[in-house]
């Protein structure tokens, strides 16, 4: 049987991914290459923030310490966030943004599909709703990856640079988390390594169609899901948390 803490932490890993990538994507609003993408990126950010709200609320209830979605989103210190490092990396340019969205949404699609059969009924319901959103994100990002990879020499170059930069961080998606073992055993959700083969089967053909070279695996490791983040995370949190930190206890 998974402890309350283990169960909460597993849900936080999933919720924090949505929160932090939603925060990153929202930085695009008003600055995208075309108006349609301004709207699409804002819409995806909105989906992710919506997922984060449901998951953090659920995590707060599991934890039982009276923390709501906002206390979890805005008032933890950096080492208590459980998101993948991939989600917190800066947007850089449109190529990195869509390549990351593709790599991440492909992961989310598989995860939501597995979680929709979770023994945690609340998590299963959230997953069923979120799966539809993730499929759209995957479709949107995948189309752009192909368009940019197989577009001009410049767009191909930028896409390959983005993929080379992001790829090492994808190892973390499938790194085992021993503290999740009991959660997996209880049928709450999948073990992370179990998603890897399906993810590669979805991702690699699209990257090939985009004429991009899939990088080889390296010894590089990142540890965001265990609370050890990149240097970028502190700045993201400083921006995101400023109002809650400046006006403690205020309701909005």
């Amino acid at each position: 049987m998974a402890s309350k803490q283990e169960h909460t932490e597993y849900v936080l890993r999933i919720g924090d991914n949505a929160l932090i990538l939603g925060q990153r994507l929202s930085e695009w609003c008003g600055h995208a290459p075309v108006l349609e993408e301004d709207m699409a990126l804002a819409n995806m950010a909105l989906d992710l923030i919506g997922q984060a709200r449901m998951l953090l609320t659920h995590a707060g209830q599991l934890e039982g310490a009276g923390r709501d979605e906002d206390q979890l989103a805005f008032l933890r210190t950096e080492a208590h966030y459980r998101n993948l490092t991939l989600c917190e990396l800066p947007n850089e340019d449109f190529a990195r943004t869509v390549v990351r969205n593709f790599l991440f949404s492909s992961f989310q699609v598989l995860l939501w599909a597995r979680l929709s059969g979770s023994t945690d009924a609340e998590l299963a319901a959230i997953a069923a709703k979120s799966l539809k959103e993730a499929r759209y994100h995957q479709q949107h990002a995948g189309d752009w990856v192909i368009r940019l990879g197989d577009g001009t020499a410049e767009s191909h170059r930028r896409s390959q640079v983005a993929l080379d930069y992001l790829w090492p961080y994808t190892a973390e998606l499938f790194a085992p988390a021993p503290s999740d073992d009991k959660v997996v055993a209880a049928g709450i959700g999948p073990a992370w390594p179990s998603l890897e083969a399906d993810w590669e089967a979805q991702v690699v053909p699209v990257l090939n169609e985009a004429t991009l070279t899939v990088p080889a695996r390296t010894p590089f490791k990142s540890f965001g899901k265990f609370g050890r983040h990149s240097e970028h995370m502190g700045h993201l949190l400083a921006t995101m948390q400023i109002m809650q930190r400046t006006y403690p206890g205020a309701r909005w």
């Binding site: 929202s26 923030i49 995101m240 909005w252």
Partner: peptide, 17 residues
Amino acid sequence: TRAPSLKRKAILLAKVQ
């Protein structure tokens, strides 16, 4: 990016969209 709650962040994102 600085909205004070997740609800207000979602409302503002939807509005700007």
